[in-house]
C-alpha cells in the first residue's frame, strides 16, 4: 500500500548518524571523555581482581587470571549494555516515531552499532592489558575472539528486536532485565574458571550461549584451547534461529506503536 521504502534511501547513513550521535552525546561534555566510558568496567575489574585473584590465581592456580577477568568483563559489558540500550532504543527515540516516519529497525540497529563502538573502545584496554602481561595469543585465538564477539552482537541484535517494541508497552521490562543480567553475570564464568564447577554444573552452564562464548574465549586466548566444531555449529544454528524469531516478533510487535505511545 504505502511505498515508504522509497522515502528513506539513506538507511545506512541514518543508522550510522544516529549511532554516532549517541556515541558523541554519551561522552562529550566531560573532560575525561572516553575515559568515563571505560571507568565502570575498569572499576569492576579492579574490585573483582582484588578479591578473587587471591582465590583463583594463588600458587599459580589460574594462569593470567587478570587477563581472563578483563576479557570476560568487557564481553559481558558489551552484552549487558547492548541489550539494555537496544531494548530502550525505540522509547528513547520516541520523537522519531511519533513525529516523522523513520523505519523503526534503523533506530534499533543504530543502538546496537553504538554498543559496538563502545565495545571497540574497551578492546583497546584489553590489548593494553595483554601487552602489559606479555601474553601474545595465537592468530587463531584472536580470530575466535572476534568471531565470538560477533556472536554476542547477534545476541544483542536479536534481543533488541525482540524487546524494543515490547518495552514501549511494558516499561518495567528494564528492571526485570536488570535483575536477569545480574544473575547472568554470575552464571557466566567471568570471575571464576569453569573448571571449579562440578562436571554436571559445567555442562549446565555451557548451555547458556554467553557462558559458552566467554569460557571458550578465555580458553582460546590464554590456553590456545578451542571448542569442538560441532559445539560452535550448534550455537550458530541456535543463535540464527533466535535471530529469525526475533525478526518475526519485531514485525508483529512493531506495528502500530506510534499510535500507542
Amino acid at each position: 500500500m504505502f511505498q515508504f521504502l522509497k522515502q528513506h534511501e539513506n538507511y545506512k547513513e541514518l543508522i550510522w548518524v544516529l549511532a554516532k550521535t549517541d556515541f558523541k552525546l554519551r561522552y562529550h561534555g566531560s573532560v575525561l571523555g572516553y575515559v568515563w566510558a571505560l571507568l565502570q568496567p575498569l572499576a569492576m575489574f579492579a574490585v573483582l581482581n582484588f578479591v578473587f585473584s587471591s582465590i583463583f590465581a594463588r600458587g599459580g592456580g589460574e594462569p593470567f587470571y587478570s587477563l581472563q577477568l578483563i576479557v570476560g568483563i568487557m564481553m559481558f559489558t558489551f552484552f549487558s549494555e547492548g541489550t539494555s540500550s537496544g531494548m530502550k532504543s525505540l522509547l528513547s527515540k520516541s520523537q522519531l516515531i511519533t513525529k516523522t516516519y523513520v523505519p523503526k529497525w534503523t533506530i534499533i540497529l543504530s543502538s546496537t552499532i553504538h554498543s559496538v563502538l563502545t565495545y571497540l573502545m574497551s578492546l583497546i584496554i584489553v590489548v593494553v592489558f595483554f601487552i602489559w602481561k606479555g601474553l601474545v595469543p595465537s592468530f587463531g585465538a584472536v580470530m575466535m575472539f572476534l568471531f565470538f564477539s560477533f556472536l554476542i552482537y547477534v545476541i544483542i541484535v536479536s534481543f533488541s528486536f525482540l524487546t524494543a517494541s515490547l518495552f514501549i508497552r511494558f516499561r518495567d521490562l528494564a528492571m526485570i532485565w536488570g535483575v536477569v543480567t545480574q544473575m547472568l553475570f554470575y552464571a557466566t564464568p567471568i570471575v571464576y574458571p569453569l573448571k571449579t564447577m562440578t562436571e554436571n554444573m559445567q555442562q549446565l552452564l555451557l548451555a547458556n550461549p554467553l557462558a559458552f562464548i566467554v569460557h571458550f574465549t578465555k580458553e582460546s586466548l590464554i590456553n590456545d584451547h578451542f571448542p569442538d566444531l560441532w559445539q560452535i555449529n550448534f550455537f550458530i544454528v541456535l543463535l540464527l534461529l533466535i535471530f529469525i524469531i526475533s525478526i518475526f516478533v519485531y514485525k508483529k510487535t512493531s506495528k502500530g506503536i506510534a499510535e500507542n505511545f
Binding site: Q7, H8, E9, N10, E13, L14, V17, L18, T21, K24, L25, H28, G29, K93, Q95, L96, K99, T100, Y101, V102
Partner: peptide, 30 residues
Amino acid sequence: PFLELGIGFNPELSGRDNIFLNATILGLNQ
C-alpha cells in the same frame, strides 16, 4: 514529513551536528 520542525534536534549538540542529524532523519544523504 514536515509535521514538526527540528525532529531529532538535540540541545547538547552544536548547530552543525544538528543540521546533519536532522537532515539525515529527513532523508538526505551525507
